[in-house]
Simulated scan of single mutants.
Amino acid sequence: MLGLAELTDAWAHGWSLSRDTTPPIAITDGLKIDIDPTRNIARYILKPYDWQRAAVLGRELTTPGTEIKIVGATDSLREALKSDWTMYDEHHLMTVPFTRGVAETPPSCSAQIVNDGGALLGMICDSNGDIVSRARLAASGRYGVIDRVRTRAADQRRGMGRTVMTMLGNRALDEGLATGLLSATTEGRRLYSALGWKIRGELAGAFRST
Rank of each mutant, 00 (worst) to 15 (best):
M1T: 03
L2F: 02
G3H: 10
L4I: 01
A5C: 09
L7I: 01
L7G: 02
D9R: 15
A10F: 02
G14H: 01
W15L: 03
S16W: 03
S16K: 04
S18A: 15
R19P: 00
R19Q: 15
R19E: 15
T21R: 11
T22E: 11
P24Y: 03
P24E: 11
A26C: 07
A26Q: 12
I27E: 13
T28A: 14
G30E: 01
K32N: 08
D34G: 13
D34C: 13
D34L: 14
I35S: 10
P37G: 10
P37K: 10
T38R: 15
T38I: 13
T38L: 15
N40M: 06
A42T: 03
A42C: 09
L46I: 03
D50C: 00
D50W: 00
W51Q: 01
A54E: 06
A54M: 02
A54H: 03
A55K: 14
V56C: 07
V56P: 01
L57N: 10
T62D: 15
G65A: 13
I68E: 04
I70Q: 05
G72Y: 01
T74P: 09
D75E: 11
S76F: 00
S76K: 08
L77M: 05
A80C: 06
L81T: 05
S83L: 11
T86M: 12
T86R: 15
M87G: 04
D89V: 05
E90P: 03
E90N: 11
E90C: 02
H91S: 14
H91F: 09
H91R: 14
H92W: 13
M94V: 06
F98N: 10
T99S: 11
T99P: 00
A103Y: 08
E104T: 15
T105W: 08
T105A: 10
P106Q: 11
S108W: 10
S108T: 13
A111G: 07
I113C: 12
G117L: 04
G118E: 14
G118W: 04
G118R: 08
L120T: 04
L121F: 08
I124Y: 03
C125D: 09
D126C: 05
D126A: 06
V132R: 12
R136F: 11
R136I: 01
A138V: 05
A139T: 08
A139V: 06
G141S: 06
G144D: 07
G144L: 06
R148W: 14
T151R: 11
R152N: 03
A154T: 11
M160S: 05
R162K: 14
V164F: 04
M165F: 02
M167H: 04
L168E: 13
G169R: 12
N170Y: 01
A172T: 01
L173Y: 09
E175I: 00
A178N: 12
T179A: 00
G180P: 04
L181A: 06
L181P: 05
L182K: 07
T186E: 12
E187G: 06
R189N: 07
R190W: 06
L191I: 09
L191G: 09
S193F: 08
L195Q: 11
K198W: 01
R200K: 13
E202R: 02
A204I: 00
A204V: 01
R208D: 09
R208I: 07
T210C: 10
